[in-house]
Simulated scan of single mutants.
Amino acid sequence: MLKYLLITLLSVLFSCSKPNPATHDLADIESILMTQEAAWNTADLEGFMNGYLHSDSLLFIGKNGVTKGWDSTLENYIKSYPNQKAMGKLKFTILKKELLAANVAMVIGKWHLTREDGNLEGHFSLLWQKVNGQWVIVADHSS
């Protein structure tokens, strides 16, 4: 009986100590989102865009429809948020994050801009892909 209990206890301990790749990947994604938040809050739109796939295949879906490509998405951000006052302070709240496959993840959350001229807020769903070992947003639907 003692031998059985010891084996069970050791099995539980060893199973708890195994690294979980999904947890690591989701933590990496959350870290990228926090880096984006920090870049936004210093009016660094190009730094903010580092979280996105730098490609013409990037999709951004917002209130004005679909924008294709990293450069076009950056241009839209610059037009909508031309200076730090317009940008305000960004805060992300993650509502759900899930690894869908070894190299694909989804994050759903809320964004909130605190601004002198009136706050803005909405929700987002992000499709992430691991490209060359780096997680990047390949599709962003923000409203």
Rank of each mutant, 00 (worst) to 15 (best):
I7Q: 14
L9V: 15
L10Y: 07
L10S: 13
L13D: 08
S15T: 12
S17N: 14
A22C: 05
D28Y: 06
E30P: 02
I32M: 14
I32F: 03
L33Y: 10
L33A: 12
W40E: 08
N41H: 03
L45K: 07
L45E: 03
G47S: 10
N50S: 09
S55F: 00
D56N: 05
S57T: 08
G62V: 07
G62T: 14
G62R: 06
K63Q: 13
K63H: 09
N64Q: 09
N64T: 02
V66N: 10
K68Q: 10
G69P: 02
G69H: 02
G69D: 00
D71E: 13
S72P: 04
S72T: 06
L74G: 08
E75V: 14
A86K: 14
G88W: 08
L90A: 02
K91C: 08
K91H: 10
F92P: 12
K96L: 11
K97A: 03
E98R: 00
L100E: 02
N103F: 05
V104I: 12
L113H: 08
L113C: 03
N119Y: 12
E121W: 13
L127D: 08
L127G: 11
Q129D: 13
K130D: 01
G133E: 11
Q134D: 12
I137R: 02
H141L: 06
S143N: 14
